[in-house]
């Protein structure tokens, strides 16, 4: 059978999700953000949440997330997404409120807002993209940058004596009584993408069921910032990142 015979709407098993807008993303080729955006768009459609979802966009590479997923959005100041989401959720409890944040937004400038929203058990889902670097500003050190990792501000590699330790904030969040589900996933292979999708689905379900705060960390890549090809970045992530940020559920209540 020739491809032209197979390519028929009746045989389609995978299509671009309806809730992704038509615009091309500004992300670099191979960026993990695009995969996570696609998963979210798929889930919002499959779960029938299109009319009730409000996303909170961060400051960082994902600042324009609102241009790509076709639901209501609020763009927060740097690090304040959990505070913004707190009000969105408390004032519109019927809605699904989720934040989408990078490591700088969530684990550096917004640490207080992250921890306190999670500790209050706000009924929100936090999607946390950890690529161990500041992508948007040109590849500087993030709170999650690994020891020895080179960035624009750690040109000779991160040193504990100069820069402190990588912050494993997801482990911290798992210890808070306000969180109901804390998991660490990746999107570098097809099976990983399937698992990550299930995790985000669970986080959305928890938020709708008012079970408290769910945190889904996606251990990601920034091939531009890491100065690798996308495939090399995936490999480096799987080898080095998961050592410090091991994949799997940290909490599931």
């Amino acid at each position: 059978m020739k491809p032209e015979e197979i390519i028929d709407p009746a045989n389609r098993v995978y299509a671009r999700p309806r809730l992704l807008t038509e615009v091309n993303t500004h992300y670099c080729p191979g960026c993990s953000h695009g995969v996570v955006h696609r998963i979210i768009a798929e889930l919002l459609d499959e779960m029938g949440l299109e009319d009730r979802a409000v996303g909170v966009a961060p400051v960082g590479c994902a600042v324009f997330a609102y241009n790509y997923i076709d639901v209501d959005w609020v763009e927060a100041a740097h690090g304040r997404a959990p505070a913004v989401a707190t009000a969105l959720s408390r004032l519109s409890p019927e809605n699904l409120v989720f934040t989408y944040q990078g490591d700088g937004d969530l684990a550096a400038i917004g640490t207080a807002e992250t921890i306190h929203a999670a500790n209050r058990g706000e009924n929100i889902a936090i999607i946390f993209i950890n690529n161990a670097i500041y992508g948007m500003t040109g590849g500087q050190m993030a709170p999650t940058t690994l020891i020895g990792q080179r960035t624009a501000t750690t040109p000779y590699g991160r040193r504990v004596d100069l820069n402190g330790h990588p912050l494993n904030i997801t482990n911290l969040l798992a210890q808070l009584p306000g969180t109901c589900y804390v998991t660490r996933q990746s999107v570098h292979t097809a099976p990983a993408v399937r698992k990550a999708k299930n995790a985000i689905k669970k986080a959305f379900e928890n938020a709708m069921a008012k079970k408290g705060t769910s945190v889904v960390e996606i251990v990601s890549t920034c091939n531009s910032g890491w100065k690798m090809t996308p495939a090399q970045a995936n490999e480096w992530m799987a080898t080095h990142m998961t050592e410090h940020y091991p994949l799997g559920d940290l909490k599931n209540e």
């Binding site: 927060a76 100041a77 304040r80 505070a83 913004v84 009000a87 969105l88 408390r90 207080a112 807002e113």
Partner: peptide, 11 residues
């Protein structure tokens, strides 16, 4: 206060 004003922004 930072969180409070950003909650106001969200609300």
């Amino acid at each position: 206060e930072v969180a409070a004003i950003n909650m106001v922004y969200g609300g």
